[in-house]
Structure formats: structure tokens, C-alpha cells
Amino acid sequence: MAKKKEKPIDLKNLEPEEKIKYEIAEELGLLDKVLANGWRSLTSKETGRIGGLVTKKKREVKS
């Protein structure tokens, strides 16, 4: 089975929701890992932390 080819990530041209994910990954010191190996390289704990902070940021924006 062929491995899915990852397209290069353009950090300047992201959807707002994607941008938040990358910003949080950077805040947590995980951005280099994501850029080098993709989101799948993160542990479930790291992914959960990012997801929790994305949700928190969305709530802050709504209120």
C-alpha cells in the first residue's frame, strides 16, 4: 500500500481552525515535531492537550 504523500505545510496560508492548532503546538513546543514528522508522530497525551486547548480557545472567542 502506497504511503500518502504529505504536502508541504504553508504556515502563512492556513484555515483559521488549522492555524489555532499549529499555534498551540508551537506554544507546547511540539511544532518542530509536527513539521518534521506530521501530526501522527504525537502521542495521544500530546494530541489531547492540543485538542483541549483548541476547545478552550474556541470557547473564549465565542464569549
Rank of each mutant, 00 (worst) to 15 (best):
E18V: 00
L28A: 10
L30M: 07
K5R: 12
K5I: 00
K21F: 10
G29A: 04
L31P: 07
A36K: 14
L11I: 12
E6P: 06
I20L: 15
L31Y: 03
D32E: 15
K7N: 06
A36P: 01
K7S: 06
P8L: 13
K33A: 03
K21I: 05
E17L: 04
K33E: 10
I24G: 05
L31K: 11
N13Y: 04
L35M: 14
E26T: 04
E27C: 01
V34C: 10
L14A: 07
V34H: 07
D10A: 13
E15P: 06
A25V: 02
L14T: 08
G29V: 04
L11W: 11
I24S: 08
E15I: 00
L30T: 01
I24P: 00
P16L: 06
L28S: 02
I20S: 09
K19I: 07
E26Y: 04
V34Y: 03
K12L: 15
K5D: 10
L14E: 03
G29W: 04
N37L: 10
D10Q: 13
E27Y: 05
P16C: 08
A25C: 05
V34R: 08
E17Y: 07
G38T: 04
K21L: 12
P16E: 13
L30I: 03
E15R: 15
K12D: 14
E6A: 14
V34P: 00
L28P: 00
E17K: 14
K12S: 15
N37M: 09
V34D: 06
Y22K: 02
N13H: 13
G29M: 03
L11M: 08
L35H: 02
K7F: 06
K5Y: 05
Y22A: 01
I20A: 14
K33S: 04
Y22T: 01
L35R: 05
A36T: 12
L30S: 02
L31C: 00
L30Q: 02
P8F: 08
N13V: 04
V34S: 08
E18P: 02
E23S: 09
G29S: 06
A25H: 03
K21G: 09
L30W: 01
K33R: 13
L35D: 08
